[in-house]
Design a protein around this nucleic acid. Structure first.
Lengths: 351, 351
DNA sequence: TTGAAAGCGCTAACAC
DNA sequence: GTGTTAGCGCTTTCAA
């Protein structure tokens, strides 16, 4: 099964280095010879062993993509786009799932860092310090996390939050809440701050419910706590949480958007089919995945092999500009928002 | 950045082979020495280079998982489970997306085959011949495809189809249709045949609409053709198609389940939130992903390294039994099925 | 228990 | 334009 460069060489009647050249620098080999070699290679179904090649070139032609939860509908389009962009440059992508665990994230990223040419860390949950440390081990691009000195693709969630809050305010709401996601999430912080700022600017009341697990179950648990805030409208960390909220609220007899308006994030498929259909801030996950890989690939290309470059050779240039791209989000209005109803304040049931 | 076995060796004051042993066969090295080596390794943050190791052991500790469409909600749970099962054995997973293209599937699988220890082909769209050929290049496990001599994990979609059709028949339907998916899909054939057989056995009328793209758009296009069949109930290739059908039908003023009952496949999240909520055959994608990797890993372990084994050494044993596992599906009844209404047959609009 | 040496499959100077 | 040689980082006989 294992056909090597040597088999091809002997079949084609040339030296192995000629075979090697035929594949890695075809222009350096005589067209006739090249043809002969290629014929032999095809006949033998030869494909260069990438591990062997990588050992010497220092390139594995592999990328790693580390995400919090593959099964969360937020990620698959991103994974797909990343994979597709990588494939265009003949790169394969290793996908790792951290299960929302910071420890797993750190462990996986570290382990992967050594066996790939670069890693994309999507929505990381570890500390800036650990991320910076990781960046010393490998070429690193972040998605939805800003760390000084590290290239990143950021989604403009704050703009989304301003649009969402603005819409709610325009509708006449004066008591808002933010139903939060995981504390370690950059997106979570961005949304919370933007919503809080918008409320502060207009004198609306603002409260936070959470942190919550970024899942339907998390939303279910948040539902009673959201009601307790007395808010008439809420911005929600993501659609999954909003879906859980919808279930919990319906079970408690609270109508959406009649008594409570909701705007969440992500625009997953189910959001459009929920009852009511969820107004949501669509996230450019495809674009982000593509750009992250693009950035990473550029980083890899730009690096002078594995050898240390002679320091100061070109004079001390300024610190290289770190690519930080921000991609736009979009508020999609559906059926989960309406003007506030007359507020009904009930006494807590158990007191 | 690149710390090698040599760095560790010199720091620990031993030969590189001792360092190697410390990592790959610790019991062969003196506890004291081992400790010294480990200390040095930790201090240097040394991790063995897998590519180099693989070059000699013939193991990459990588698996490839080839799917038709990462963004199709059917696959992510499978990918997640596969990745998680692989991680338990310290394997990484390369995920490739074929975009439903048989050509891409073949190309990707072939390319990946050489750089990993084994590949899982999920819902393949290529011919048996090509798949068998691929199996000669690598260790291969199929999901939802039966090819003689190749290990596979199959979901019992036929049983699901019988349950679905039985339910529809019990409700009183006598004119059924199957809204098909891609022709090259094994699942598609299984469902079609099972539904057809059930109809034949009871004398119900049966027709097929399709093939269709396994997407919402595909369902939208199928909607008018489904109406033309005069069926009062349909089994649908997957939830995505059913969702598209729902849109198309609603636009045409056809009520579900009032005028038309629907049962689809997969049980994606959006199915539960659709209006009406879709009755569907849940697919054990997690389990399948896990089992496929388990099977593959066993296959890899069982192979006597890369060297050819001495033939007939143990006497000619019978051809090794090929693992074929079938995992159960489950019919989930929600709101998209009801007894048939009085049938309204309209004359075709354009004649 | 450890060291020495060969070599996995390939690329990259360098010579011819 | 092609062959020679060295060697990437590691494992694995084989001796000591």
């Amino acid at each position: 099964v294992a056909v090597t460069i040597r088999d091809v060489a002997s079949l084609a009647g040339v030296h192995i280095s000629t075979v090697s050249r035929t594949f890695s620098a075809p222009h350096l080999v005589n067209p006739d010879t090249r043809r002969r070699v290629q014929e032999a290679a095809t006949r033998l179904r030869y494909q260069p062993n990438r591990a062997a090649r990588g050992l010497i070139t220092g390139r594995t032609y592999q990328l790693a993509l580390v995400v919090a939860d593959i099964a969360n509908p937020f990620f698959p389009p991103m994974i797909k786009a990343a994979q597709s962009e990588a494939a265009r440059s003949d790169y394969a992508v290793l996908v790792a799932d951290t299960d929302e665990s910071p420890a797993a994230e750190q462990r996986l990223a570290r382990a992967l860092a050594r066996q790939v040419d670069g890693v994309v860390l999507a929505s990381p949950r570890t500390s800036d310090r650990l991320i910076r440390q990781l960046a010393e081990d490998t070429r690193l691009v972040l998605i939805n996390r800003a760390v000084a000195g590290i290239p990143a693709v950021l989604m403009d969630v704050a703009a989304g939050a301003r649009a969402a809050t603005g819409h709610l305010l325009d509708l006449g709401h004066r008591e808002l809440a933010y139903v939060a996601g995981p504390t370690a999430s950059w997106v979570n912080t961005q949304i919370r701050q933007a919503v809080a700022a918008a409320c502060r600017a207009t004198g609306a009341r603002f409260s936070v419910v959470g942190p919550n697990s970024p899942t339907i179950a998390g939303g279910g648990e948040a539902a009673p706590r959201l009601r307790e805030t007395g808010a008439t409208a809420a911005v929600v960390f993501n659609d999954l949480v909003a879906l859980g909220l919808l279930d919990g609220l319906a079970a408690a007899g609270v109508s959406v958007p009649g008594q409570l308006s909701l705007i969440s994030y992500d625009d997953i498929l189910a959001a459009a089919y929920a009852t009511p259909p969820l107004s949501t801030v669509a996230m450019p996950t495809r674009l982000a995945g593509q750009l992250a890989v693009e950035t990473l690939l550029r980083l890899i290309d730009g690096t002078t092999s594995t050898r240390p470059r002679t320091p100061g050779a070109m004079g001390d240039s300024a610190a290289p500009a770190v690519t930080r791209t921000t991609v736009p989000t979009e508020l999609i209005l559906r059926g989960s928002t309406a003007p506030p109803a007359v507020r009904i304040r009930r006494a807590p049931a158990n007191h």
